[in-house]
């Protein structure tokens, strides 16, 4: 349980931070796409006898690079690039799974999350991945904020926008892989996006957006885990449903504020 809690806290803090940059750049679904690509990686890992998070990371990073390459090639078809990688990933995952001839029960742990079975190695990988992502995002805060606000202005400011775009999708891939054991492939995008959506209901600055998003992410993991423990629920689903509840709560608070004439 201690390992589960630690892994959950790392993921709960990391996902919303990268999620802020994705949501503001209208790339909310990229986490979903990379989750599906990492499914292929997990299946390939099982087949080859490789540590699944490692193979998932390799596939997710390759998928991330492919998405950005396709997106930068034809910006107007950004969502098409996402769909191409998304379906290629899941199709490859299904084929690789069928090749193994035995649908390993542990695979479900990656699909739907299995935070209570997180191993010591998993915890180390999750902590290093999450910590690295948070450190890089903190160091490049002003550059990524500028990029999120307006890519053209970022370019004219002399920022290496091509490099930063690739960096954002690669960091997303790493975050997605770190979150696989916690909420699972099918729900990982929820933790990237929902705490950010909740934060956007209340925040009055970019700094506050980041702070609230982390707060809602961590709160969702803690309360979700608690609910899963008390009511014997699937932890991944409980965490995401808790995040949805925080979003609804934040929306209500905003609504009440607006009715009272408070500018939001």
């Amino acid at each position: 349980m201690q390992r589960a809690l630690l892994a959950g806290l790392v993921v709960g803090a990391t996902c919303p931070v990268i999620g802020v940059y994705l949501v503001l750049r209208r790339l909310s679904l990229i986490g979903d796409g990379l989750g599906h690509v990492s499914f292929a990686g997990v299946a390939a890992g099982w087949l080859a006898g490789v540590y699944p998070l490692l193979s998932a990371a390799m596939f997710a990073i390759l998928g991330a690079v492919a998405i950005e390459r396709l997106r930068s090639w034809r910006r107007e078809y950004g969502d098409l690039a996402l769909a191409m990688v998304f379906y290629s990933g899941i199709a490859l995952g299904v084929v690789l799974t069928s090749l193994s001839r035995r649908m390993n029960v542990s695979l479900f742990g990656y699909l739907f999350g299995s935070i209570l079975t997180v191993t010591q190695l998993d915890l180390i990988v999750i902590s290093v991945a999450g910590g690295s992502v948070l450190a890089i995002l903190t160091l490049l805060h002003k550059e990524l904020f500028t990029l999120a606000y307006d890519e053209d202005l970022a370019r004219v400011s002399g920022l290496p926008t091509g490099f930063l775009n690739y960096l954002v999708v690669i960091l997303t891939a790493v975050t997605v892989v770190a979150a696989l054991r916690v909420v699972g492939i099918l729900l990982v995008a929820g933790l990237l996006v929902i705490p950010v959506s909740a934060s956007l209901q209340l925040a009055r600055s970019f700094r506050a957006t980041l702070t609230y998003a982390i707060l809602f992410g961590v709160l969702s993991v803690l309360l979700g885990l608690l609910a899963a423990y008390v009511f014997d629920l699937a932890p991944g689903g409980a965490i995401i449903l808790t995040a949805v509840l925080t979003f609804l709560l934040a929306t209500s608070v905003r609504g009440v504020g607006a009715r009272r004439g408070v500018s939001t």
Binding site: L24, Y149, L200, A203, R204, F206, R207
Partner: peptide, 8 residues
């Protein structure tokens, strides 16, 4: 809808 202040 962008969540940033004028100063930011």
């Amino acid at each position: 809808g962008f969540p940033a202040t004028v100063r930011e």
